[in-house]
């Protein structure tokens, strides 16, 4: 192992040197000592290297700064993307709420304008994917007072009837189902032709009206409402508009292709008629008067 040699009188030399430096420093501080040319020489010699090293440092600094900026931009980008996703989700949620609000408002208006019906609102929670235009499942059942054969409507018109009831949900057969038959009549006061509305089994049209005599006064544009016959559907619920009138195969009867009032592909909220009362003669007169004046289907019922 390396060791120090004995100090001896070297310590005195060191003390003298230190004192010398101390004095030089004090005189230097008072500007009384300067070493001509030394500073300039040293700086001149070192300057090129310092300049090169600085340039290298600046270059590295620029690269580090660029990397820093890149990293911060990356972070910012990530943050902004997350923000965009959140805002999109919020926007989607808001739009959904707005649409739901509109639908519920429509149902509420319908409820208020149809005093003769006691309605229970429900949401469509499922469709049969194989025959989705025929049956839907709603989130109300026997616990909510729903019973079999209760009519289901929307503010636009007739949807169908409840065919199966469970505790908290029910199955609704739509009027587009070929197994469903609805007693109907033409709303026009000078026609009032009666018939049966059924789903079209070959799906050429959604629904059609049959059992119409050849001489019956029915024409495209006529509005079809429920007739109240059959005991399931109350009278006056709007079903749809006549699209086309044609002769049946035997030639004795006519049929009418009907465009349903309800868009079954966009069915989300419905109302179940749990109770219906007969309208008072005054209301009936008023409704008939309105119908005669060409009153249309603002609320989906004959007025």
């Amino acid at each position: 192992m390396q060791t120090n040699e004995p100090m001896g009188k070297k310590i005195w030399i060191l003390i003298v040197v230190l004192l010398g430096i101390f004095c030089t420093m004090f005189f230097s501080a008072k500007d009384r000592v300067s070493i001509p040319l030394t500073n300039r020489t040293v700086i001149t010699l070192l300057a090129p290297f310092q300049s090169f090293s600085s340039a290298l440092g600046n270059k590295s600094g620029s690269i580090i700064n660029a990397l820093n900026e890149l990293m911060s931009m990356y972070q910012e980008n990530k943050q902004l993307k997350a923000e965009v996703t959140t805002l999109r989700e919020e926007n989607l949620h808001d739009n959904e709420l707005e649409a739901e609000n509109q639908r519920l408002k429509g149902l509420l208006n319908y409820k208020e304008s149809t005093k003769q019906f006691d309605l229970v609102t429900a949401s469509v929670i499922a469709r049969d994917s194989a025959t989705w235009i025929n049956n839907v499942v709603i989130n109300r059942g026997s616990n909510d007072g729903i019973k079999k054969d209760m009519p289901v409507v929307t503010p636009d018109g007739l949807v169908g009837a409840v065919i199966d009831v469970y505790g908290s949900y029910s199955v609704v057969a739509l009027i587009t189902d070929p197994r469903v038959a609805v007693g109907a009549l033409v709303q026009r006061s000078d026609s009032r032709v009666a018939g049966i509305v059924k789903g079209d089994i070959d799906k050429q049209v959604d629904i059609h009206m049959e059992n119409i005599s050849r001489a019956a006064d029915i024409q495209p544009g006529d509005q079809i409402i429920t007739s109240g016959l059959g005991g399931i559907y109350p009278k006056g619920i709007f079903i749809g508009t006549v699209d086309e009138v044609g002769n049946e195969a035997g030639g004795l009867l006519k049929y009418a292709a009907i465009k349903p009032a309800v868009d079954f592909q966009k069915l989300e909220d419905v109302a179940i008629i749990v109770n219906s009362r007969e309208l008072s003669p005054e209301v009936l007169t008023r409704q008939m008067q309105k119908a005669a004046d060409g009153g249309s289907r603002e609320t989906g019922t004959a007025k």
Binding site: Q2, T3, N4, I21, A29, I35, N39, V42
Partner: peptide, 25 residues
């Protein structure tokens, strides 16, 4: 010399430190 500070300012301190740490060998 290169930094232009008081002559001896760093010389003194570095010298003392060099001496002190040299004793540790």
């Amino acid at each position: 010399i290169a930094s232009g500070t008081f002559l001896g300012f760093n010389t003194l301190s570095k010298m003392i430190i060099g001496f002190g740490f040299g004793l540790m060998i």
